[in-house]
Design a protein around this nucleic acid. Structure first.
Lengths: 168, 168
DNA sequence: AAAGATTGACGCATCAATCTTA
DNA sequence: TAAGATTGATGCGTCAATCTTT
């Protein structure tokens, strides 16, 4: 992609076709509106943000209920610094603890506490039900399969854009 | 959905099947990670947040470059109060102006200024290119068509959940 | 009474800078 | 020198309360 087109006049731009625009609009709706309802449900029923829930949930499924901070950040779809800030609060609430990895001191291991385990167990049913109602039930099996493949494709492009110094 | 299952024991819960979980994971990745790169691109190249861009962009396409605040909020995928807060800042930057609707005083009309128009024109090429690279190019035409239909289905469930007092 | 809109306080995300270990 | 992690300031989103117009 040349710099000329990047900041160029409108004539140079490869605008979206009607079909492309329609698909993007459909995806944007989902991408920008899906988190809201899930967040609300968790806030209301479990006093958790969606991000906090994802952190606790991932830990609860990990071997030894333990994960490195950097691994956990990826699994919870957040940055390491965001996780670090939230982990401090969760630690204060007594739901996780952090310790330096004994094998390699620059890693930090996040461990779900017993109290944290109970919190996830209690929150999970309502969250799963919300997910089922919001995204599983409205779609056919074929659409779910298509969605899985689409997600995998997009995962690559998003990963590439965020990892390598994003040039666009 | 009975209250019993909502806060019930784990045994009552309709957990996601492996296929459902895979589809949800794929969608979650997109839903939670797509905004970031688009926001970064706009911040870096145009000093705009994604939400600000969507506001200006929708206005630029509207007849008379004018929309009611409540209509604009829906088109930009945000709440009315969020829009109201951001509109104040955009007004201070001289990119939009607000006026009471002469026909019906409880509506407020947001109007894109000449300066605002120039800002969108300048930001649009880079944003479209980012969208194309992130979501259009990685997908086949069939996937784009499937995505459009999936988005429409989910739009309904999301709408229903956020409109009517969300019970889950 | 209800719809449209606004406000401001509070809480969280982001970003750059920093620190530590390897 | 680089990877992993943390920190704190700044800015924005959320939410409840409020105001106006119909």
């Amino acid at each position: 992609v040349s710099r000329a087109t990047k900041r160029g006049a409108a004539a140079d731009v490869h605008w979206l076709s009607p079909q492309e625009a329609e698909a993007w609009q459909a995806l944007a709706l989902v991408a920008f509106q899906l988190a809201g309802p899930l967040d609300s449900q968790l806030q209301r029923d479990s006093e958790l943000t969606l991000f906090e829930y994802l952190i606790l949930s991932q830990l609860s499924m990990a071997p030894g209920r333990t994960l490195r901070m950097s691994e956990l950040a990826v699994l919870a779809f957040g940055s390491l610094s965001r996780l670090s800030n939230v982990a401090k609060r969760l630690e204060q609430r007594g739901w996780l603890s952090r310790e330096p990895d004994p094998d390699n001191g620059r890693y930090t291991r996040a461990v779900l506490t017993k109290a944290g385990w109970r919190v996830v167990q209690d929150a999970a049913p309502g969250h799963v039900e919300a997910v089922r109602h919001l995204v599983i039930e409205p779609l056919t099996e074929a659409q779910l399969r298509a969605l899985t493949e689409i997600g995998k494709r997009l995962q690559k492009s998003i990963q590439d854009t965020t990892t390598r110094a994003p040039d666009l």
